Amino acid sequence: MPTPQTLKNHARFNPLFHFTILPLLVLNLIFSIYITIHRWPAYQHTHLWWIVMAVVFILMAGDARGSALKAQDRIVRLEERLRLAALLPPADRTHIDDLTTRQLIALRFASDAELPALAHTALTQRLEPKAIKQAIINWRADNERV
């Protein structure tokens, strides 16, 4: 059984991206630079183009990863707004839109019992996401996030 998720272990890696794709792309860039330096007189433009394409591949991978995280953030934001609408008292419901996306993402780890008080505190004191996560007592795991 995996250990329960907490503040200390909630960050996650995507093994395929972080340990395979990204290292191979960096190695490709290093190899392209190495070949360009050691084979400079021959095929100058081709070697320079390899470096440019190696950088482009890294940028593409980073953009793809960033787009996936942005989509996840939008879904989490929607889920948390719906959850807050169901759990907050009427006076606080009108201020749900005042919470930033980063605050909503941090609030997803709070249990239903402590969410209303924590959301009110986040609204009134403008808590940063790290402070919100540190204030959570009963951690609600999010094992689907990558």
Rank of each mutant, 00 (worst) to 15 (best):
A135L: 11
V146D: 12
L24K: 15
E79T: 06
L29Q: 06
T36P: 08
A91V: 15
H45A: 08
P2M: 14
Y34P: 09
A110L: 00
L88Q: 12
A117N: 05
M53R: 10
Q125G: 02
R77F: 01
R81T: 08
K130E: 06
A113P: 00
V146S: 14
H18F: 12
T121I: 04
L115R: 00
W139V: 00
T124L: 04
A117Q: 09
R140W: 01
L107F: 03
A71L: 05
M60R: 08
N9D: 10
A64Y: 07
D73Q: 04
M53L: 10
L59Y: 11
K130F: 11
R12V: 15
E79V: 05
L123G: 02
H18G: 08
F31Y: 12
Y34S: 13
L82M: 06
L78A: 03
D97T: 14
I105E: 09
P4V: 00
L115Y: 02
N143C: 09
I33Y: 13
R74T: 00
D97P: 10
L99H: 01
F31I: 14
H47T: 03
M1Q: 00
R145P: 09
L123Y: 02
W40G: 06
K133V: 11
T6Q: 11
E80I: 01
D142G: 12
L7W: 03
Y43N: 09
T121M: 02
T6H: 12
H10M: 15
A86M: 08
K133E: 15
P116K: 06
P23H: 12
I136D: 01
Q134L: 13
H95N: 15
T121R: 08
L115H: 02
R102W: 05
Q134E: 14
W49R: 10
T94Q: 15
F17K: 15
I37F: 11
A122R: 04
Q72Y: 04
F57I: 04
S67D: 09
K133G: 07
A61G: 05
A119Q: 04
S32Q: 09
A54K: 10
I33H: 10
P90W: 14
I132A: 02
L99K: 00
M60W: 12
P129L: 01
V56K: 10
V146Q: 15
